[in-house]
């Protein structure tokens, strides 16, 4: 895993790198990983029930002692949700004068979770002003880091995984903010980017490999790279995806389910 403090230039350009250096697309590994997961889940037998599926998320694989409470607090979640909208807009080259208003507009039309909407509605004028300042600051960092995103790049935003395992008794859920590159290319070209409004913590490695595993199982194609960008610190952490990393993610998931 590589940590880059305040990367210069566009993070997407840096992550995509030189096309000639990319490995061939791997469509074989996913089946093996799925088999290991299914075998591991099968051993749990009666503890799993299809009528009440166990949902595994990126948050579940982060150890509790590593958890960043600030990101889980309602205001942290609200800020994260608004900045996530800025990621979506930024990927489409939408430029604005007021990042907060734009994020808020996009978030509201996207049918947000009722509890977060309530948190926002309960904010007084000072609270909203503080939130607006924070979102604009995170937005400015994001804007600088994203740079121009060429239209020809295959960019998807808020890419969801809802992967049923063990005949539907376990569901792997995940959302990646940005997925760049198509899984249909001959070379490995898919780059996953998770944008966080918190500083990058010790749980980053687990989160990154969970994202990689979810994407790999969903598409049956091993992604090339996975990264996390912090709009709080401007740090970028990246990892090239390989069998070792994905195997560790499988162990993480089985560990969560066994608990």
């Amino acid at each position: 895993m590589t940590l880059t403090t305040t990367p210069t230039g566009s993070i997407l350009e840096a992550l995509r790198g030189d096309r000639s250096e990319r490995p061939r697309r791997d469509t074989e590994t996913a089946a093996g990983l799925r088999a290991i997961l299914e075998d591991g889940l099968c051993e749990l037998g009666d503890r799993l029930s299809r009528s009440a599926p166990l949902v595994v998320t990126a948050a579940s694989v982060v150890r509790r002692d590593d958890a960043i409470d600030i990101a889980r607090a309602p205001m942290g979640r609200l800020r994260g949700a608004l900045v996530a909208q800025l990621v979506r807009l930024g990927a489409l080259e939408h430029r604005s004068d007021n990042a907060f208003i734009d994020a808020l507009r996009a978030w509201r039309v996207d049918q947000p979770a009722a509890d977060l909407l309530q948190v926002f509605d309960d904010l007084d004028a000072d609270g909203r002003a503080r939130l607006a300042t924070e979102v604009c600051a995170h937005g400015a960092t994001l804007d600088r880091a994203l740079g121009a995103v060429p239209a020809a790049w295959s960019v998807r935003t808020a890419v969801r995984t809802r992967l049923p395992l063990a005949n539907g008794a376990v569901v792997l859920r995940d959302t990646v903010d940005l997925v760049v590159g198509a899984s249909r290319d001959d070379t490995a070209s898919t780059v996953l980017v998770d944008v966080t409004t918190s500083p990058i913590g010790s749980s980053a490695a687990r989160l990154l490999r969970y994202h990689a595993l979810a994407q790999c199982l969903r598409t049956s194609v091993v992604p090339w790279r996975v990264a996390m960008f912090s709009t709080a610190t401007g740090e970028l952490v990246t990892a090239d995806v390989d069998v070792t990393l994905l195997g560790a993610a499988v162990d993480d998931v089985l560990g969560v389910v066994r608990q």
């Binding site: 604005s96 208003i101 996009a106 808020a158 198509a182």
Partner: peptide
Amino acid sequence: HPAELALVQACAVDWAT
């Protein structure tokens, strides 16, 4: 609003991809 249109566009791009 333009930001809402941009979000609609993002959702449609994801679908088309």
